[in-house]
């Protein structure tokens, strides 16, 4: 399953339970991020086991995007069905600086940078 959101592509690989973010995601506001929230919900609803959020190829994410993904992570924490692995790249500055915030939201997250 693929979602094109602005200059970003979000791909869900069902077999590996992996969501890959690529490009630059700088949508105008939270409302515009609803499409990303819906995409994540539709594809991960009822899922159990490991779920990977792979940001290594995402060059930019604005604060509305960080908020959207933070709310998704808080929702996963609340449901408690999945084990989250968040992958980032040390070569992409925003990931080095801001992905750690996700682990602060839910200490059980495995963060790989």
């Amino acid at each position: 399953m693929i979602l094109h959101a602005g200059d970003a592509k979000v791909t869900y690989d069902k077999e590996n339970q992996d969501v890959k973010f690529e490009g630059s995601m700088r949508l105008a506001n939270m409302k515009e991020y609803d499409q990303v929230t819906e995409f994540l919900k539709e594809n991960t609803n009822g899922l159990a086991g490991k779920l990977t959020l792979d940001f290594t190829e995402l060059q930019f994410l604005n604060s509305s995007g960080i908020t959207t993904l933070s709310l998704f992570i808080l929702n996963c924490k609340k449901k408690g069905d999945v084990e989250l692995l968040v992958k980032g790249s040390k070569d992409v500055a925003w990931q080095q600086k801001s992905l750690a915030n996700f682990k602060k939201l839910w200490s059980d997250i495995h963060l790989e940078i």
Binding site: D34, S63, S64, T67, L71
Partner: peptide, 9 residues
Amino acid sequence: EGSTDSGIG
């Protein structure tokens, strides 16, 4: 989820 503004920039 219905929020329009993140407010955390």
